[in-house]
C-alpha cells in the first residue's frame, strides 16, 4: 500500500495526522483505551479544565434531538491541579499528544491557568471562550471582538506553547472574531463549539435541560460548522481546526477541503467510540484513491 503523509502543522506543533478528539467528548483519553491506541491519534483535547474544580450543572444534562444532542454539562471537571497529577503523567508516558482546553471566568483566571499548564507533556493549549453552559465567562468572552483580543493577548504573554482559540458559532460575524484572535497572537483557530439550543417537555411545559438551554452538537450542526470553517479559513492565515458533527472520514474531508488543517471528532465518540481511528484510516484511503501524497495538498482545495 502506498504511503501517504498525514502530518499537519498547528503553529509549531507537528501532528502525526489531522484527527483530534474534541474537548468534553473523549474524557482524558484513557477512558477510550479499549477502542484503539490513543497515541496514534493526531492528539486529544482534554475536557475543559478550570483553575478550581467545578461540579457542573444540575441534571438533566443531555437530551437527544433530531440527528443531534443538547448538553448542559457546565464544565464539570476536577480542576487543573488534579489534571496535572492524575492524568497528565499517564498521558505523557503513553506518548499522547495532549492539548488542554482551558476555561475561566476572568482574564486573570485564564492567565493563571495558562501558567499552571506550562508542563512537559502539554503539547498545546486550547482557549475555550465559547462554552454556552456557564453563566460567567465562557461564551461571553467569545462573542465580542474586543474581549477576544484582550483575553487571547493576555494569555499569549504567559505561554510559549501553541495557542489554539476555540470559537463559538453563536455570533453574527465569525470571521471578525477569528481575525481578532489572530491579531492578538492565536497560533490556530478551532471552530465550532456547540450551537445554543433548547428543548421542552410538552407534558409538563418545562425545559428538558436543568440549565434550560444547552449546546447542540452532532450531525445536525455539520452544515453550519462547515460554512463557518470555510469563512474563517479565508479570513485568517493561521491554521484552522474544524469541528461540528463529524461522524465519518468523508465529513472530515469536507472540512479539510474547506480549509481546515485538522479536525476534531466530538459527539461521534459517544456513539461509535472508535470513530477517530476510522476517520484517520478513511482520510489515508481517500488520499491514495485521489493520488495525493500529503493531506496538506487537500487543505483549502475547494473547487468552484
Amino acid at each position: 500500500m502506498r504511503q501517504v503523509d498525514l502530518g499537519v502543522d498547528i503553529g509549531s506543533l507537528r501532528l502525526s495526522n489531522p484527527v483530534l478528539t474534541a474537548s468534553g467528548t473523549f474524557g482524558y483519553g484513557l477512558e477510550f483505551r479499549s477502542f484503539g491506541d490513543i497515541s496514534a491519534l493526531g492528539g486529544i483535547v482534554v475536557k475543559g479544565t478550570t483553575l478550581e474544580p467545578r461540579a457542573g450543572n444540575r441534571p438533566q444534562r443531555v437530551v437527544e434531538t433530531a440527528a443531534g444532542m443538547l448538553n448542559s454539562i457546565g464544565l464539570e471537571n476536577p480542576g487543573v491541579d488534579y489534571f496535572l497529577t492524575h492524568y497528565l503523567p499517564e498521558l505523557r508516558d503513553l506518548g499522547v499528544t495532549t492539548i488542554v482546553n482551558m476555561a475561566g471566568n476572568t482574564v486573570e483566571e485564564y492567565c493563571r491557568l495558562t501558567e499552571r499548564l506550562q508542563q512537559p507533556g502539554v503539547a498545546a493549549l486550547e482557549l475555550n471562550i465559547s462554552c454556552p453552559n456557564v453563566k460567567a465567562g465562557g461564551m461571553a468572552f467569545g462573542t465580542s471582538e474586543t474581549a477576544v483580543y484582550e483575553v487571547v493577548g493576555q494569555v499569549k504573554r504567559h505561554t510559549s506553547l501553541p495557542l489554539i482559540v476555540k470559537l463559538s458559532p453563536n455570533v453574527t460575524d465569525i470571521a471578525s472574531i477569528a481575525q481578532a484572535a489572530e491579531a492578538a497572537g492565536a497560533d490556530a483557530i478551532s471552530l465550532v463549539n456547540t450551537l445554543l439550543g433548547m428543548a421542552v417537555d410538552t407534558r409538563t411545559r418545562r425545559p428538558i435541560l436543568g440549565n434550560v438551554v444547552g449546546g447542540l452538537s452532532g450531525p445536525a450542526i455539520k452544515p453550519v460548522a462547515l460554512r463557518m470553517v470555510w469563512q474563517v479559513a479565508q479570513a485568517v492565515r493561521v491554521p484552522v481546526i474544524g469541528l461540528g458533527g463529524i461522524m465519518t472520514a468523508n465529513d472530515a474531508l469536507e472540512f479539510i477541503i474547506c480549509g481546515a488543517s485538522a479536525v476534531q471528532i466530538g459527539a461521534a465518540n459517544f456513539i461509535e467510540p472508535g470513530t477517530a481511528w476510522q476517520v484517520i484510516d478513511g482520510i489515508a484511503s481517500y488520499l491514495r484513491e485521489q493520488g495525493l501524497s500529503s493531506v496538506r495538498e487537500l487543505v483549502g482545495s475547494l473547487q468552484f
Binding site: G24, T25, F26, G27, E31, F32, K47, G56, R58, P59, R61, V62, N71, I73, E76, N269, F270, P273
Partner: peptide, 8 residues
C-alpha cells in the same frame, strides 16, 4: 463511558 458527564 464516563466521557460526556451527562448522567450526573
Amino acid at each position: 463511558l464516563g466521557a460526556c458527564l451527562g448522567c450526573a
